[in-house]
Nucleic acid binder design. Structure first.
Length: 423
RNA sequence: GGAGAGAUGGCAGAGCGGCUGAUUGCACCGGUCUUGAAAACCGGAGACGCCUCACGGCGUUCGGGGGUUCGAAUCCCCCUCUCUCCGCCA
C-alpha cells in the first residue's frame, strides 16, 4: 500500500506509474474520498472536544438543574459523535479499498512494457545441454525411474497433487539442504515456518484470501489460510513491531510448504510438476533500512545468491529484469531466474526476487527509528526464492539425463542423496 | 480439553470511573561538570491522525471488537494472545 498523502501529492507520477503497469485506478475518487475523510475527522474532533469539555463541567456543577442540562447535552453530543464516526468509517472503508489497488512505484531502471515478453534478459549463464538423443521431459523420466506418483496424488488430494518417490524424495531434501546451507553461510537466520497464516497477515503481505481470483486455500470456519509462500509468514513475523535501526538489514530465510489453488490456470503449462497445488520452498526474506540504496543493494545480493545456487547445481539459466506490466502490486522491481528445461525446450521460471520497498511494511506496520529522522519509518522488505523444489527438480531431472536413460545427480547434491546417479 | 492469572509508551512496571496521556525505573536526546569519557546532577522526549505557510492547536491511542455512562486504562460482554496448574498426546 502506498501512503495516502504521497498518492494525492504525486497524482501525475502515480497515474503514469499505474499506466505503465497496466492497472487502472481512480485517483480522482481517492482524492475526493480523502477530502471527505479529512472533513469528517475535523468535524468529529471538534464535537469530541466539546463533549469532553462539557463532561468535565459536570463534577463541578453544584446546581442540579445545571447538572441535568449538561447531562442532556452530553447525551446529545454522544449521538452526534456516533453518527459522524459511522460516516467516517464508511468513507475510510471505501478509501482503503481504492488505495489498496494502487500498485507500488517502480524502479527507474525497470523496463517499461505491458507484456511478459517485454521483460529484459539481463544475462544468461551456463551451457544449454546438447543431447545426441531425444531428451525426455521430467514426466517421462519420473515414470521411467518411479520418481513421482501423479495418480496417487490425484486419488488422495485431487489433480495437482503428487507423491514424490525414491530418489525424488532424496533430491527434495538435498535441494532444501543445499539452499539452507548456502543461506546460513551467507548470514541468514534460518526459519522453518508455519504453513498457515491469519487473514490479516495474508492481506498485509499483499495476498487476498477471498474473492474469486484468489490463489489461496482457506480453512473452513477459521480465519486461517494455507500459505502460498513463506514470504507471507516471514513478512508477518515482525508485523506491528519496531526494529532497532542498528539491527538492519535483517536477513531471514524460511522453509515451508506452499499451497496454491492455481485457479484459472488450467491448460497453462500444466504438465507434470511445473504448476502444482503444493510444493516445498526455501525462501529468502529481508528487512532493510528505509532507503532505496539499501534495499537495492540487498536486492542485488538476493539475485546473486540465487544465481550462485543455480550455478552450484550446474543448471543453465537466464536472469530477467521484469517489465512494469508483469510486476505485481507490491514489487518496486523484480528479477526472475529462468532455468533451461529441455522437456519444454525453453526456459522456465525457477525463482523470483522482489524489492517491495515500504509497500508491504506500511500495511504490516513494520517500522524502525532512524537516527536522523523523527518518528517511525517503514522499513523496506524484499523476498526471493532460494529453491522452489518442484521447479528445481524439473530442471535437475531434465538437464542431467543421459543417453543410457540414467540421470546424474548434480555433484553438489551427492553428499545428501548418497548416490551419483539414478538408474 | 478443564481451572486460574494476566495483556499499559522502545523495554520493565504502577494505576483500577472525572484531578492520569498515564507514577516510576532502564534505555534514548540535550545541558552542567571533566583534558576526554564514565559517574553525578539538571532538562527534554510516546505513537498516529486532522487543522495551520508557520508558531501552534485539537483529536485518537492503556491487546482487538462491542456495551454501560454526561464521562472508561479503570465497570460489563465477546475475541486473540501469554503465563501457571490438571488432563491428553507426536
Amino acid at each position: 500500500m502506498l501512503d495516502l498523502n504521497f498518492i494525492c501529492d504525486n497524482v501525475e507520477a502515480v497515474s503514469a506509474n499505474c499506466r505503465n503497469r497496466g492497472v487502472s485506478v481512480d485517483l480522482q475518487a481517492i482524492a475526493a474520498l480523502r477530502q471527505k475523510r479529512n472533513e469528517l475527522i475535523t468535524q468529529g474532533d471538534s464535537v469530541r472536544k466539546e463533549q469532553k469539555e462539557s463532561a468535565a463541567l459536570i463534577p463541578k456543577a453544584k446546581d442540579p438543574a445545571e447538572r441535568e442540562g449538561l447531562i442532556a447535552r452530553g447525551k446529545d453530543l454522544r449521538e452526534k459523535v456516533g453518527s459522524l464516526d459511522a460516516e467516517l468509517e464508511a468513507v475510510e472503508g471505501q478509501l482503503r479499498e481504492q488505495q489498496m489497488r494502487v500498485p507500488n512505484m517502480t524502479h527507474p531502471d525497470a523496463p517499461v512494457g505491458e507484456l511478459e515478453s517485454q521483460s529484459v534478459i539481463a544475462r544468461t549463464w551456463g551451457e544449454i545441454p546438447k543431447f545426441d538423443f531425444k531428451p525426455l521431459d521430467h514426466v517421462q523420466l519420473a515414470e521411467k525411474h518411479d520418481l513421482i506418483d501423479f495418480d496417487g496424488g490425484a486419488r488422495v488430494a485431487g489433480s495437482g497433487f503428487y507423491f514424490l518417490k525414491n530418489e525424488a524424495v532424496l533430491l527434495e531434501m538435498a535441494l532444501v539442504q543445499f539452499a539452507i546451507e548456502k543461506l546460513r553461510k551467507e548470514g541468514f537466520t534460518l526459519h522453518s515456518t508455519p504453513d498457515l497464516a491469519r487473514q490479516e497477515v495474508l492481506i498485509g503481505t499483499g495476498y487476498n484470501p477471498r474473492g474469486n481470483e484468489t490463489q489461496i486455500y482457506s480453512i473452513a470456519n477459521t480465519d486461517l489460510s494455507l500459505v502460498a509462500t513463506a514470504e507471507i509468514t516471514l513478512g508477518g513475523l515482525l508485523r506491528d513491531s519496531i526494529i532497532d535501526f542498528e539491527k538492519l538489514p535483517l536477513k531471514y530465510a524460511g522453509v515451508s510448504h506452499c499451497f496454491r489453488t492455481e485457479a484459472g490456470a488450467a491448460g497453462k503449462a500444466s504438465r507434470g510438476i511445473y504448476r502444482v497445488h503444493q510444493f516445498t520452498k526455501v525462501e529468502i526474506f529481508g528487512f532493510t533500512a528505509p532507503d532505496v540504496a539499501a534495499s537495492d543493494a540487498f536486492h542485488k545480493e538476493i539475485v546473486r545468491i540465487e544465481e550462485e545456487i543455480f550455478q552450484g547445481l550446474g543448471l543453465p539459466y537466464r536472469v530477467l529484469d521484469i517489465c512494469t506490466g508483469d510486476l505485481g502490486g507490491p514489487a518496486y522491481r523484480k528479477f526472475d531466474l529462468e532455468c533451461w528445461m529441455p522437456g519444454r525446450g525453453e526456459y522456465g521460471e525457477v525463482t523470483s526476487a522482489s524489492n517491495c520497498t515500504d509497500y508491504q511494511s506500511r500495511r504490516l506496520a513494520i517500522r524502525t527509528k532512524m537516527p536522523d529522522k523523527k518518528g517511525n519509518v517503514f522499513v523496506h522488505t524484499l523476498n526471493g526464492t532460494a529453491v522452489a523444489v518442484s521447479r528445481a527438480l524439473i530442471a535437475v531431472l531434465e538437464n542431467y539425463q543421459q543417453a543410457d536413460g540414467s540421470i546424474l545427480i548434480p555433484p553438489a547434491l551427492r553428499k545428501w542423496v548418497g548416490q551419483d546417479k539414478i538408474g
